[in-house]
Computed example of a mutant assay.
Amino acid sequence: MTEKFQKVSGTFLGVPSAADAAHADVAIFGAVHGTAYAGAQFAPPSETGPDAVRRAITTASVHIDHWDFDFDGPLLNDGALKVVDLGNVPTTPHANDKNRDAIESATRDIRAHGAMPILIGGDDSTAIPFMKGLSDVPALHILQIDGHIDWRDHIAGERFGYSSTMRRASELSNVRSITQVGIRAVGSARREEVETATSWGARIFTVRKSRALGMTTVADALPRDGHLLIHIDLDALDPSICPGVNALSPGGLRLDEVTDLIAATMQDRTLAGLSVVELDPAADINAMTATVAGRLVCHVLGHLARSVPSETRHRK
């Protein structure tokens, strides 16, 4: 029998390692591989994306109990939020069906224990089964922070690759809205994909539009009923601070803009999950991207730790 999670040598911020999410408010897990396109080449990594994030943010944070000036106190609010790290789901290159099943099963298992899942990828395709694993949430609103809209129906017949993440999300019966922030320049989208997205009802905020309106106004576009999923593709941020991604594009969001958006969006909303994807450790510089990815997870944890208990637990 294959283990649901593979333990890692160092956990995120040194939080407890666990075999399951029992007795936790939040459970972090990694997924290195999702759905590969035919012919994709994979060089054996010296370090996986999830493990790079764990190492970088733990090093940068020194100690989880130290004062976090972004939250005027220790990050987890003196233990108010119980966080565990489950390790990584077992995935391998090109084992597309098995990878998706493993990620979806892990997400459902975390939810079944009453905890909120946080996925660290892996490319953007890992988010497709993660979102499917949230199907027990009756009404899900997605905030996608990304440089690209990802609405391709398929590429060379593959429907579950990283260019189709939001297209597949739009087909889930419990997804009520999709708000896309940080969009810029050129990606895989053609006129067809843009028209499909806007016809479905997706709200698209380019970087320029987001800055003109302000992040609080952008956050106000998201409904307050139901549950919120925050999905972050690291290429949403400018490559000057996130160089370790697959698709570099200048003119991205600043870190403070993304953290302001997270703060405004989480206010008076119930979070169902968080996914942070698209770190390529081989392309990173001084672990900048990995550290930023970890810090984005920290901002979500910090806000959860300061919310009322009924909002930090996510029972079915």
Rank of each mutant, 00 (worst) to 15 (best):
87 G>D: 13
254 R>N: 12
114 G>H: 06
184 R>H: 06
183 I>G: 12
61 S>C: 09
108 R>G: 00
287 A>K: 04
8 V>T: 07
251 G>Y: 07
114 G>W: 02
227 H>K: 06
212 A>T: 11
7 K>D: 13
290 A>G: 09
209 K>Y: 08
243 P>I: 07
304 L>R: 05
148 H>A: 14
162 Y>L: 05
235 D>H: 00
142 I>C: 10
298 C>L: 04
46 S>H: 11
174 N>C: 09
218 V>F: 04
66 H>P: 00
22 A>Y: 03
274 L>Q: 06
166 M>W: 01
48 T>A: 09
78 D>I: 10
132 K>I: 02
136 D>G: 12
203 R>M: 12
306 R>M: 10
282 A>R: 13
154 H>C: 08
166 M>I: 11
115 A>I: 04
313 R>Y: 02
82 K>A: 15
192 E>H: 13
206 T>K: 02
119 L>P: 10
171 E>M: 00
289 T>E: 08
291 T>P: 04
273 G>W: 11
12 F>K: 05
90 P>W: 01
297 V>I: 15
109 D>W: 00
246 N>G: 15
216 T>H: 15
193 E>L: 06
35 T>I: 11
305 A>E: 07
298 C>P: 04
186 V>M: 13
271 L>E: 12
41 Q>T: 15
171 E>P: 00
119 L>H: 07
21 A>T: 10
60 A>L: 04
187 G>P: 02
244 G>P: 08
281 P>L: 06
193 E>Q: 15
50 P>E: 00
6 Q>K: 13
18 A>H: 01
313 R>I: 15
107 T>P: 07
78 D>P: 04
220 D>A: 15
164 S>Y: 02
28 I>F: 03
201 G>W: 01
290 A>N: 02
309 P>G: 12
128 I>N: 03
284 D>E: 11
134 L>N: 14
308 V>C: 10
175 V>Y: 09
115 A>E: 02
275 S>V: 10
150 D>V: 13
64 I>Y: 04
153 D>S: 14
296 L>P: 02
270 T>V: 15
73 G>T: 01
207 V>S: 09
211 R>T: 05
35 T>Q: 06
96 N>P: 05
166 M>S: 15
162 Y>F: 11
208 R>C: 03
245 V>P: 02
231 H>V: 07
16 P>A: 04
179 T>M: 02
